[in-house]
Lab assay of single mutants.
Amino acid sequence: SASLEDVKTAVLGLLVILQTKLYTLPASHATRVYEMLVSHIQLHYKHSYTLPIASSIRLQAFDFLLLLRADSLHRLGLPNKDGVVRFSPYCVCDYMEPERGSEKKTSGPLSPPTGPPGPAPAGPAVRLGSVPYSLLFRVLLQCLKQESDWKVLKLVLGRLPESLRYKVLIFTSPCSVDQLCSALCSMLSGPKTLERLRGAPEGF
């Protein structure tokens, strides 16, 4: 439990870093931090981490990651405290083949985003970082199938509809809506759902 406290501190630090690096160059920093966060949550489900502190780590990670939004130009952003989304000039939600690297070039400044813009690109060529939603999407499927803490599952179920409104997140990387529907149906009809959940409301 003591070591998990250190892990929790590290994860919180990564969330803060991602919130900053999403809007700064090099964009590969945001890509790497995002991948680290998603990989860490995957390990929770792989090794069945069920301690309360592990659940709190997942809760905080999902609470942040499910706020990711994308505009029509595929640029990622996060809402501010007033709910207004600021889109990044440097990070996009497109999935890119590994051989192309985590970044790609664009020939010049991008068109203005639909929300308040981030800082304008400084040079004639900007390297865009790929932060594909499919990585998070796979972890969300694991959550629906394996999550043991009701608070975490409730958060994910509550945030998913709003995330799905931003269709560009889903359609720019390999996210299977069929698998999502299947996971939701299995969660509702499967007898093991109630068996594994802690803290579920009576009558769920």
Results as ranks from 00 to 15, higher is better:
4 L>A: 08
6 D>Q: 01
9 T>F: 06
10 A>T: 01
12 L>N: 15
13 G>F: 00
13 G>V: 00
14 L>S: 09
15 L>Q: 14
15 L>S: 14
17 I>Y: 01
18 L>D: 01
20 T>G: 08
20 T>E: 10
21 K>G: 01
21 K>F: 00
22 L>F: 07
23 Y>D: 04
25 L>Q: 15
28 S>G: 10
30 A>K: 01
31 T>S: 12
34 Y>W: 08
35 E>Q: 12
37 L>M: 06
40 H>E: 01
43 L>P: 00
43 L>G: 12
47 H>I: 05
53 I>A: 05
55 S>W: 03
55 S>T: 10
58 R>A: 00
70 A>S: 07
72 S>R: 15
73 L>I: 08
76 L>H: 02
80 N>F: 08
82 D>E: 11
84 V>W: 09
86 R>T: 08
86 R>E: 08
86 R>S: 08
88 S>R: 02
89 P>N: 09
90 Y>P: 03
92 V>I: 10
94 D>L: 04
96 M>F: 13
99 E>I: 14
99 E>L: 09
101 G>L: 12
102 S>A: 10
103 E>S: 11
103 E>L: 15
103 E>C: 14
104 K>Y: 13
107 S>F: 13
107 S>T: 14
108 G>K: 14
108 G>N: 13
108 G>S: 14
109 P>W: 14
110 L>Y: 13
113 P>S: 08
115 G>T: 11
116 P>W: 15
117 P>E: 15
125 A>M: 14
127 R>N: 09
127 R>D: 10
129 G>A: 15
130 S>Q: 10
138 R>V: 07
141 L>S: 03
143 C>F: 01
144 L>M: 07
144 L>Y: 00
150 W>A: 02
150 W>H: 02
156 V>N: 00
156 V>D: 00
156 V>L: 03
158 G>K: 12
160 L>G: 01
160 L>S: 00
164 L>Y: 00
164 L>E: 01
167 K>D: 03
171 F>W: 05
172 T>N: 08
174 P>M: 05
175 C>D: 05
176 S>A: 10
179 Q>H: 12
180 L>D: 00
183 A>T: 09
184 L>C: 07
186 S>Y: 08
187 M>Q: 02
188 L>K: 00
190 G>W: 10
192 K>W: 10
195 E>Q: 12
196 R>F: 05
197 L>G: 03
198 R>L: 07
200 A>P: 07
202 E>Q: 13
